[in-house]
């Protein structure tokens, strides 16, 4: 079994004159937590969108477990074991949190009989258990449109985890989470993902989170990877500090 789970080679995608991906080469290693940092508009979300099939690169190839997935439909990519969460949580707002997660379980388990209920005992149990691991038990019965931003974010990630992916791509999992809860949320998340042996790629703006949880960090800049390596090494690089972290700290302030 190769050490590389996902590999992107020479990805290019431009929106008009803006190069959102200008030759991205990146290997994601099995089991690692890889953080993606960089200023807004650098192409971080575009990378996630290309990997999950939402956008098709104009050039380049993406392989997962050694097989090309470039330009496949999102649901075929999901079927192979890649799930994602969203910068703006994408919940089914007319459903409860429990039903949202149960729908994800149902999607993973399909096809199903049209007459057995969504909240059948086995799926309900699994959903309850997952929400417990995410610390969301208290809001399981709440409608998804009645949650605060932090809870919506976690519920969104819980839905992705319910798909039992081997690779999870998270777009800013901590944005919108209150500053004093941030570490706790990431702590919870890291525990759940490690226990489920999920490889994770996450876009992050909080350098403390990156330093503490990422095994490696990739610095995005104008559609390219400007630096890649362990956080301690990359984050202390003077150029990265000036070009990225400076901006990040400034933006955070």
């Amino acid at each position: 079994m190769s050490d590389v789970l996902l590999s992107a080679q020479g990805l290019r995608l431009a929106f008009g004159g803006v190069k959102a991906a200008d030759g991205i080469d990146l290997d994601v290693r099995r089991g690692e937590f890889l953080a993606i940092i960089g200023p807004n508009g650098a192409g971080k979300t575009t990378f996630i969108n290309m990997t999950t099939g939402y956008l098709r690169p104009q050039a380049g190839i993406i392989t997962y477990e050694g097989q090309a997935i470039t330009g496949m439909a999102p649901r075929r990519i999901v079927a192979r074991g890649i799930a994602r969460s969203f910068q703006l949580p994408q919940l089914f707002t007319e459903h409860t949190v429990l039903e949202n997660v149960a729908l994800a379980i149902a999607a993973r388990e399909g096809p199903w009989s049209p007459l057995a209920p969504l909240l059948r005992p086995r799926w309900r149990e699994e959903a309850v258990d997952l929400l417990e691991r995410f610390g969301l038990t208290s809001i399981a019965g709440a409608r998804a449109d009645a949650l605060n931003e932090g809870a919506r974010k976690l519920a969104d990630i819980a839905m992705a985890v319910a798909l039992k992916p081997r690779l999870l791509l998270m777009d800013e999992p901590t944005s919108g989470v209150a500053a004093n809860e941030k570490m706790e949320v990431v702590e919870t998340l890291a525990r759940v993902l490690r226990a489920a042996q999920v490889t994770a790629v996450f876009v992050e703006h909080d350098m403390d989170v990156v330093e503490r949880f990422a095994d490696r960090v990739a610095v995005w800049s104008q559609g390219r990877i400007a630096a890649l390596g362990p956080p301690a090494e990359v984050l202390s690089d003077p150029q990265v500090q000036r070009d990225v972290i400076g901006i990040e700290r400034h933006a955070a302030a």
Binding site: T52, A73, P74, R75, V78, F92, E94, A107, R108, M159
Partner: peptide
């Protein structure tokens, strides 16, 4: 009802 509220998410869960 999920189609009504968040159709794209369905696709990203593997549900056509």
């Amino acid at each position: 009802s999920a189609i009504k509220t968040r159709e794209t998410r369905l696709e990203f869960m593997g549900l056509p």
